[in-house]
Design a binder for these strands. Structure first.
Lengths: 323, 323
DNA sequence: TTGAAAGCGCTAACAA
DNA sequence: TTGTTAGCGCTTTCAA
């Protein structure tokens, strides 16, 4: 019977027979306590994320992972962490380490698209559950994803920028990118943003312009850029750079929408230099990712392969309720 | 040693000795699988909620409870359900049933304040963990609470009503109550609502008026009530009644803010007759409530006694992402 | 007050 | 291909 349950071979048709008859009909449920006690297995999860020093955003998923790690330690789950600096070569270096190791599950954030595809194709050969967070690579099959719908979040940003405005209004989209940026999350967001205005044809009172610079060159912002501008959309977490500029130049009455509850972003939200933040719940993504692996491997549960994180709207008045 | 761990008596000072020395110093952690296998206990949770037939809101927490029930069944947790009709006498009848039963934990929504206090005082004698959802009774000690901060949610509603509006504006607060209503959640919300305007003194362009009627008398709404009204705040889930009226009387350009993702509310949100809904995540409250009891009783974990549910802002464009 | 041992339901290894 | 059994780490009971 044990052989049937685990289909460890050597049963002909009785297999299907007993599985269907006894198990399903009698409603058998494996006793998890006994099973795991006897199984006595330690599970090793590889956690493969960008390093968080100097990158506040990435501290959050890690926090969620650590919380899960603590919670699941008693269930025989151990994490091994692999961090990479925000560069393609550092990524590759760590990727090969992850490939060498012997793990039961992988939590992974595919920041560099091309490199991630190569890595994932290789890792998939091991036939080990993989959960991705933050951004998805839907082209590769058999991967689980926990994160936001980037397009829809941009669409929502369009609503937040336009809400309640009847008069002529010019929107500035500021793309503040990293030196290396390879996943196109922010492009999908901008895409969704424009789609909102296309879908709401009555909003003819909006004009758009875009500017683009690297995070390291934030001093490139000039007052001239904001002349005649009524609102600003920053399609990533670097919105605090704009808020900082607005504050130091005493530019008021510009509606600002951005992403993520970074400390600086929250400060400017409270001071009124940012109006809306869209929360990706990075901490929850980390926690859910580990939880997902736990359910799949330890509890042997069937589980949805994609979990979209809700698009949370954060204003000053509800920011605290999100901790 | 077993006697020490469970302090089942009959150890003098060795108790404190061994607990401190061996357990803490050697970092002993009870093996949950072995422990629960040997313990072989079934846990019985009483779920004591308003009946959900004809009360869409209360179907949601129950859904969360049922989901948790399914998940934790394998861990020896069994629910027993007690529903009461929305009347004080029905509540009392069920309450005495709950008191009679022999449970290991209780999930409870204290809809009727006075009756709930009496019930809780009695139930507390059993020394069994109690989790409340939806509304809290902080006066009674030793109870755990999972739900929203009603005051702050009203405060947030104030922001949503006022956001982006510079011109003179009249706000109508419509209190649609049940025949019997005893928890003051909606009053706390209105309280918070006014506080928002008090805290933002520059918002001198807002006037307020209130009307009040019973849910069963929704035909009392008249067009006259909405003359000169720019926005409406409904401090509970019955906002769809207002939306319905607005739609059938073709009243547009009135900003409407209400609570909860009822099907009808979502429909009117999508049609544009409701602008903002504040989500209380009732399903999550139910799930978390059971999860809370599970952690406390089965895993014997220490756990926070209050869990505030975030104040989620729902608009048409992000409603779907909340399922 | 302490020690010893059965047994919880399962897995994995070995014997038949 | 099938049956048997030790033992996972704990709780609980019974004996000392």
């Amino acid at each position: 019977m044990d052989r049937i349950l685990h289909s460890r071979g050597q049963v002909t048709q009785e297999n299907i027979d007993k599985v269907n008859t006894i198990i399903k009909e009698y409603g058998y449920q494996r006793n998890i306590y006994a099973s795991n006690l006897a199984f006595n297995k330690k599970f090793r999860f590889a956690v493969f994320l960008p390093q968080h020093e100097g990158l506040e955003y990435w501290a959050a998923p890690l926090l969620g992972v650590k919380k899960a790690a603590e919670e699941f330690e008693r269930f025989g789950v151990k994490m091994e962490y692999f961090y990479y600096k925000y560069s393609s070569s550092a990524f590759k270096r760590q990727a090969s380490k992850v490939l060498e190791g012997d793990f039961d599950g992988l939590l992974f954030a595919p920041i560099f698209y091309e490199e991630s595809v190569i890595f994932l194709k290789e890792f998939k050969k091991k036939n080990i559950p993989i959960v991705m967070i933050d951004s998805n690579i839907p082209e590769i099959e058999g991967l689980d994803y926990i994160g936001q719908d980037a397009y829809q979040s941009g669409y929502l940003a369009g609503k937040l920028i336009s809400f309640g405005i009847k008069t002529k209004s010019t929107v500035l989209i500021i793309k503040i990118t990293r030196e290396i940026e390879s996943t196109s999350v922010y492009l999908q967001r901008i895409n969704g943003f424009y789609s909102f205005f296309k879908d709401n044809k009555e909003l003819t009172n909006f004009n758009f312009s875009e500017i683009n610079f690297k995070a390291s060159e934030s001093n490139l912002l000039t007052e001239k850029m904001f002349e005649g501008i009524n609102s600003v959309f920053v399609p990533n977490s670097r919105v605090f750079i704009v808020a900082e500029f607005l504050k130091s130049n005493n530019l008021k009455d510009i509606r600002v929408v951005g992403y993520d509850l970074l400390k600086q972003n929250l400060d400017y939200l409270n001071e009124g230099y940012i109006d809306f933040l869209i929360n990706q719940k990075p901490e929850e993504q980390g926690y859910s990712g580990i939880n997902h692996l736990y359910k799949k491997l330890v509890l042997k549960e069937e589980i949805e392969e994609t979990k979209y994180i809700p698009l949370e709207i954060i204003v000053k008045e509800n920011a605290l309720s999100f901790k």
